[in-house]
Write a protein that binds this DNA or RNA. Structure first.
Lengths: 353, 353
DNA sequence: CCCCTGCGTGCACGTTTGTGCAATCTGGTT
DNA sequence: AACCAGATTGCACAAACGTGCACGCAGGGG
């Protein structure tokens, strides 16, 4: 009964080490499979093992980032939607093809998978990566594939505690996954999502333990977040998970809030001045956030469209990963706002098939 | 019976065009398959087509370079063999894993496939790419996958005519494939591999039509070639295809030639001065070749080891793609030459398994 | 006008691949 | 020495995949 009860015993083949049998075989197998087009059967014979082992070696190779599969760099001839979004909103769009018929939860899952793979190439060594939490980020975190970069840090963007839980397990799961995928240190932000009193926040913000996190956030090179939308059909955790009470919600309505990023709220036009709740929120100051080099926003579901438009109006993102239906809607709404410019898409989407 | 009898009618969807149904669907399918992990069946339903069509769309996507699969960049922990070769010979080695038991012709095929995929990322826009000919290059050319880069030129490194044929169809097939893969202009070099008389070469080298090619070669940014080895079990085309007569071969022996690159010969120590045949050969001057930024050498088969060692001694390559057996042999021979340094590999190769 | 040729499609079949399960192995603890 | 937990293997079965073939459609030539 020593004080040692780590989830993992010292046996930690996480990554480093000169590569054991296993990962060396995985490399060989990957080369033979992906570069020489042998069948797994043939590889098994050469490696003197069973075919099923080869299958597993290959999935290991994919998992650990030994094999990287990328689709379509040539941005010139990118799909129309992505170009339109880029022109309209000045963000790099990655539209995830998802038929309109699939369920919301499946769409989220698929956007998440593709998002995980899309952000991977954007991660670099020595990065400080801010990560928010929420159902979207949670889904993304489950699908990250490993990439070995060095000396990076994952920092939590906003507190996760609420009146019912400290939020630790949920948010920290997300962070942990990011940390594991990129071999990075993880810095949690152990504060509630919202303080009850703005003064408490000010006080805490002067604590050194908190300043350390704020300082990291200040030096962020990448931020990854979803958006919340007030009127979302499936409301974000923030609006239903015990974070806000009746009064808070009324205040949000009063302030004409349409959504949030990392529990910082904004209006339809992107402004966030004088939104009371922000004074008690532990999220990053939005003006500050805007200065981060790479700001990646992941969105799935048309119901988040209003929050998304606000976030775009506020210029919070440099990269936007979203499902096709939302992308279409986004462009269409933009066209309605500024009629005259490129024709709306309604017709096009049918002609596509 | 018009003079028009091109192999392909004007119907040329080669690449350009805004992308038709087909390649757009291919992109969607590729995203769904490789980025979202859907099954082909599921994709077929979303695309309202049959599963088999999806299978074909995906292979199109791979073929046309829409999907790029790369294996293992992290050079730090590259396999031991590659590191040893890099240290010993100062070239970037790509060792192709091939069990010792496979036949020579299969090994060639596999090296060729992997070579084709390995050189693809090295090709850039505005490149001038010199390409030799021979059985190795022929095999490589069959497996190139498309990559769209612009304004590049493929230029033939050495003439291919001999006493029996003009060599056009054979060499030009290789060039054509390269040109097609990279959307590049192709410049053939319509001269024999060897002139009968050195003076003819000098004369021709002053012709403007020839100078144009020489000029291109001079501005090469990448060169791709195999090696010939005098004592190769399966002799290179050059030594058996009617390019050289008895007398020539005797002369080569006299000059202590061990092999050639693009029909330019060299000795074991890498020197090429005073090798008579080079005066009649149409290959690129080796001193000149050495100045090309990226020089990629593809070798399959232990029998070419002597030619390869000469080529390495001459510093002709910056990148070397070769099968595992040859790689091992290469390192072992080097260790024998300079005993004392890192232990030889004989023992290791067994412990590997 | 019809025919012919080339391309794209879906079907059906054989092949290739993923995975739950039970047996086995390995390294460390009692 | 015996034991145990976790990892790793091969097997067998089901799922997923590639491809030859026959059909149908479109465009150009006779």
């Amino acid at each position: 009964m020593q004080p040692r009860e780590l989830p993992r015993p010292p046996r930690t083949p996480i990554d480093g080490e000169g590569a054991g049998h296993r990962s060396r075989d995985a490399l060989r197998a990957a080369q033979m499979y992906y570069l020489q087009d042998l069948t797994m059967d043939a590889i098994a014979r050469e490696l003197r093992t069973s075919r099923s082992t080869v299958s597993r070696l290959l999935s290991l190779a994919r998992q650990t980032g030994l094999v990287q599969i990328s689709v379509s760099n040539p941005a010139e001839r990118a799909p129309v939607l992505e170009q339109q979004i880029r022109r309209r909103f000045g963000v790099e769009a990655h539209v995830v093809p998802v038929a309109d018929s699939v369920s919301d939860s499946e769409a989220l899952e698929r956007v998440a998978i593709q998002a995980a793979r899309t952000i991977s190439p954007l991660m670099d060594s020595n990065a400080i990566i801010g990560v928010a939490w929420g159902s979207t980020l949670s889904a993304v975190s489950h699908h990250l594939t490993r990439k070995d970069i060095h000396d990076s840090t994952i920092v939590q963007l906003n507190g996760a505690g609420n009146t019912q839980t400290t939020g630790i397990t949920y948010a920290s799961e997300i962070l942990r996954r990011f940390g594991q995928a990129y071999g990075a240190r993880v810095e949690q932000f152990p504060v509630p999502a919202f303080f009850d009193h703005a003064e408490t926040k000010r006080a805490m913000w002067n604590e050194r333990s908190v300043r350390r996190i704020l300082d990291l956030q200040h030096r962020m090179t990448v931020a990854v977040f979803g958006v919340g939308s007030i009127d979302a059909g499936i409301p974000s955790h923030v609006y239903s998970g015990g974070y806000l009470d009746e009064e808070d919600l009324a205040q949000l309505a009063e302030d004409e809030v349409v959504g949030d990023v990392a529990t910082m709220f904004f209006r339809e036009d992107g402004s966030h001045r004088d939104i009371l709740l922000n004074q008690r929120s532990t999220g990053p100051d939005l003006d500050r956030l805007r200065e981060v080099r790479r700001r990646i926003c992941v969105v799935s579901g048309e119901t988040k469209i209003n929050g998304l438009r606000g976030a775009l109006a506020a210029g919070l993102a440099t990269d936007l990963i979203l499902d096709e239906a939302s992308a279409r809607r986004l462009v269409q709404l933009a066209a309605d706002d500024h009629p005259g410019a490129p024709a709306r898409l309604a017709g096009t989407s049918r002609a596509d098939r």
